[in-house]
Computed example of a mutant assay.
Amino acid sequence: MKKWGIYGLLIFVMLAWGMNTIMMKVLVANFMPLTMTAFRILLAAVTVFIILFALGKVRRLTKKEWKYVAAASLFNVVAHHYFLSLGFTGTSASSAGLVLGTGPLLTAIMAMIFLGARATWFKTIGIILGFTGVAFIMLKSSGDMSGFSLGDVQVFLAIVAQAFSYILIKKAADTLDPRLMTGYMLLLGSGVLFVISLIAEPDGLSSMVGATADVWVVFVLSAIVSTAIGHLIYNYAVGKVGAAESAIFMNFTPFFALVGSVVLLGETITMAQIGGFLLIIMGVLLGSGGLEDWLRQRRQQQIEAQMAKRPG
């Protein structure tokens, strides 16, 4: 597939992930959050394995690979979706989408801490800008800057857990296809989340009965399109165009979340959210290293093009 085709797929994924913040807001309003999340992740896992079976990518894991899968599932699926489902009950879809937009920034920080990635002035400035943007969003109450939103804090903890899991996924990627790892993580994580939901939400199963057909459509779209297909396409794109170029597209996710929350849910966007959005976008572009890597690749391509034009 040509590069522009990959870019089109990435835009689709960012749209799906942005709209997923809207769908999550609908789902937690109709189901108990943890129980709903356990079944949503299970459906996503089944979908991923059906696709992987069709591609011939399913195999048994080694003991070492299972250790990585279990650890990554604890952070990427259990902790991430636990805090995410609770967070959506206490914040707006627009704010949640903006906070989720800090994912590449937090991943870059984790890479510096655990993988020895180099800290540059670009990244340092980006980290400061990004977290200033998060503060603009989280330090608000009804549109002013007077207090913390617990829901926003929980969503932020969800993205921190997910960012740490990417370090584990990176370590396992030498021998394990990230797409297959995704399937096993979702399957294992859904089981753990279901056990937690039985304890935390004794009436959770009964809450899954009686929802209208349109709510179930939202449930299926969130599980299959956003979670299952979205992650498979994103992992495929990383393998084709690289992590740096793919990460830049993640800036579209909070944009789509903002637009969707206004158009579909009728939410009002505050000046604090707009300011935070702009700071997060600048922070992610600088702090994730995506802009630096892209500029470096462009310079290298220009040098190679100039050398190719020189007479032999």
Rank of each mutant, 00 (worst) to 15 (best):
G5I: 13
Y7F: 06
G8T: 01
L9H: 09
L10N: 14
A16S: 12
A16W: 01
I22L: 06
I41Q: 14
F49I: 05
I50H: 14
F53R: 11
L55D: 02
K57I: 04
R60D: 15
T62F: 01
K64A: 11
V69Q: 10
V69H: 10
A72F: 07
F75G: 10
N76I: 02
V78A: 14
H80T: 15
F88L: 08
A93K: 04
S94D: 03
L105Y: 11
L106F: 14
A111W: 08
M112Q: 12
A117F: 13
R118T: 11
A119T: 09
W121D: 12
T132W: 04
G133F: 13
G133H: 10
S142A: 15
Q154G: 14
V155C: 12
I169D: 11
D174F: 05
D174W: 13
P178I: 14
Y184I: 03
V192M: 10
A213P: 15
S222E: 12
A228N: 01
G230N: 03
L232A: 00
G239T: 10
A243N: 10
F256K: 04
S261A: 10
V263Y: 10
V263R: 04
M271N: 13
I280Y: 00
E292F: 08
D293C: 12
R298T: 02
Q302P: 03
Q306N: 01
